[in-house]
Design a protein around this nucleic acid. Structure first.
Length: 196
DNA sequence: AAAGTGATAACCT
DNA sequence: GGTTATCACTTTC
């Protein structure tokens, strides 16, 4: 159960956002709750590069209650509610550099029974193959907003090194002008849990 | 492929 | 106090 996960150090999150998005692939995202531990390997991410990125919530240095945490140091959780779903991002870059990496999909690892319960009635690959789905499967909520990802109950640990990584345009940002063309989405090639 | 859903917060009167 | 937009998902045609 409580195996020896090797947590990623705070320094890990300080690399450039695009690099971080790629480096997070294969890492383990872990959430501890009263019900137990659930974790999954990150298999799909998207980079959002702050002020110059029309698709980012922090475009033009928009600073609000919601985006506030992106202006803090790297390695914190930026959770965001959309419709009925919670989305999970990893804050990157430095203080006053509002950049982040959206985790779009994970591959179930530990706590499969919990995920099945939380996503009842769904097929295994529908448990975590989308940004709103994985948060439900891992029980990530707005309570996790601003939390450091280097300590329980929500943290990221070393996983495996993916053999093959692909990149392409991001998803769900049609209304963002030219920014939607940028190949800032990364995923593990061939992995079944990648969305779309 | 398309419509319906419906939480939060910004941006208007 | 109402309107609009948002880094989706589910169900239904």
């Amino acid at each position: 159960m409580n195996q020896a996960y090797e947590l990623l150090p705070p320094e890990f999150y300080r690399m450039p956002t695009l690099e971080l998005a790629r480096s997070l692939l294969g890492c383990l995202l872990i959430k501890e709750t009263e019900e137990g531990i659930a974790s999954g390997y990150i298999v799909e991410t998207e980079a959002y590069k702050g002020p110059g990125d029309r698709a980012a919530h922090s475009y033009g240095n928009r600073r609000t209650k919601r985006t506030e945490v992106m202006y803090r140091e790297a390695g914190r959780a930026y959770t965001y509610t959309m419709h009925t779903h919670t989305l999970f991002n990893v804050v990157s870059a430095g203080i006053d550099e509002p950049e982040a990496v959206l985790v779009r999909a994970v591959e179930p690892h530990e706590g499969v029974l919990l995920m099945e319960k939380r996503r009842s009635g769904k097929k295994p690959r529908d448990w975590t193959n989308g940004p709103g789905k994985l948060t439900k499967a891992l029980s990530i909520t707005m309570d996790d907003y601003g939390r450091l990802l280097t300590e329980p109950p929500l943290y990221i640990a070393k996983g495996y090194i993916p053999d093959d990584i692909s990149c392409g345009p991001r998803i769900g940002i049609e209304n963002s002008g030219e920014a939607r063309e940028y190949p800032w989405r990364f995923w593990v090639k061939g992995n079944r849990y990648v969305s779309r």
